[in-house]
């Protein structure tokens, strides 16, 4: 049985002499604490990503990015956050009020829920679900619904067209993504994220065992994260801001958070599936938990850096080109990858 954050907290508390038998209330408090910890952690990461995106993109583009707020503009995300929260929250007159209100939540909540079975480090996992990766894939498939709802409820042609594009793209790239994940699962023999990490400790990083699968996953992941060159969700030069054209203030902030949480989530999945998750050489003297979380963070940041770098380099692909790449190239390749992996696993090579 893997250690979870909950187990660790109970262990730490018992070290300082607090133990609470079978009573339910402290348990609920601890669970709530973990939920808050997760939210804060994700929010901090998201804030860091927005800063990092601006800085990296700035330096790619021979400029410096934010420099005024804090050292090297480090406080910029906080200022941005305050700006977003204090902006007027406008609901269009002809919008469908309830759907308009609920859409940001439908997009935002799943983007946080994917972190539940995510192994951030050794012993740093909220819950090691036996169906971990399946759960993640299922949960992250909910957000297109929210996008569609947002586009429909806004009563705006740009928003509607943008949301249709976004959903078409999300669905077409979910399939190759899941198909490549099956390859990893075949090698591991388990759906649990923790097992996938441990299996990579025993063998080697799956990026070496599944190179084709990794490339497909990477492309599909960029599409799922809706990053340039596949950022049809936004397509600001055509549809102003895509499905969230009409959103402002807090509701926009939710979409914004969800987008970066999604970026974090998928980078974390990629790090877990292909780059050994939290595995890495340990330095004696530093606790394993901290080291493993450190390795995980470095890997995630490297992937995020790659996506930002990509954004600074290439333009957007056209909508029909994105879809034809998805259906005509990615899915056949993903099936081929699955077929080869299956053969190798059956032959006992992997």
């Amino acid at each position: 049985m893997t250690q979870t954050i909950y187990d660790n907290i109970v262990y730490l508390l018992s070290l300082v002499g607090i133990s609470f038998g079978d009573s339910i209330v402290p348990k609920i408090i601890i669970v709530l604490l973990i939920a808050v910890l997760l939210l804060v952690g994700v929010a901090l990461m998201v804030m860091f990503f927005t800063w990092m995106e601006r800085k990296v993109l700035g330096h790619v583009q021979v400029r410096r990015g934010p420099m005024i707020t804090g050292p090297h503009g480090l406080l910029q995300p906080i200022v941005d956050g305050i700006k977003l929260l204090t902006k007027e929250d406008i609901t269009p007159k002809r919008a469908d009020k309830w759907l308009y209100f609920i859409a940001p939540l439908i997009v935002f909540v799943p983007s946080i829920l994917v972190f539940i079975p995510m192994p951030f480090g050794q012993g740093a996992i909220v819950s090691d679900l036996p169906v971990g990766i399946l759960y993640i894939m299922a949960i992250s498939a909910i957000s297109p619904v929210g996008i569609l709802v947002a586009g429909w409820a806004s009563d705006n042609k740009y928003a509607l067209l943008g949301s249709l594009r976004a959903v078409a793209q999300d669905i077409s790239y979910e399939i190759p993504m899941v198909l490549t994940v099956i390859g990893v699962v075949l090698i591991t023999g388990s759906l649990s994220m923790q097992d996938i990490v441990l299996a990579q400790g025993e063998k080697t990083w799956f990026v070496f065992l599944q190179p084709l699968g990794f490339i497909i996953f990477l492309i599909a992941a960029i599409a799922e994260m809706s990053r340039i060159p596949f950022d049809l969700h936004e397509s600001e030069s055509e549809f102003v801001a895509g499905f969230f054209t009409e959103y402002s203030g807090m509701k926009f902030a939710f979409f914004f958070l969800a987008e970066y949480a999604h970026l974090f989530g998928i980078s974390a999945i990629m790090a877990t599936l292909y780059f050994g998750g939290w595995q890495g050489p340990l330095i004696p003297g530093i606790p394993v938990v901290i080291m493993s979380i450190g390795w995980f963070t470095i890997k995630v940041l490297a992937i995020v850096f790659f996506t930002i770098w990509l954004r600074g380099t290439v333009p957007r692909v056209r909508v029909d080109q994105i879809l034809s790449i998805g259906w005509k190239v990615m899915i056949p390749l993903a099936l081929l990858n699955l077929f080869i992996t299956g053969l190798l696993v059956a032959g006992g090579v992997l």
């Binding site: 790619v60 583009q61 021979v62 340039i228 397509s235 954004r311 957007r316």
Partner: peptide, 13 residues
């Protein structure tokens, strides 16, 4: 032109 195609780097150069 490339800004319209969503490449934000050329305009800075």
């Amino acid at each position: 032109l490339f800004l319209d195609l969503a490449a934000s780097t050329p305009i800075m150069y």
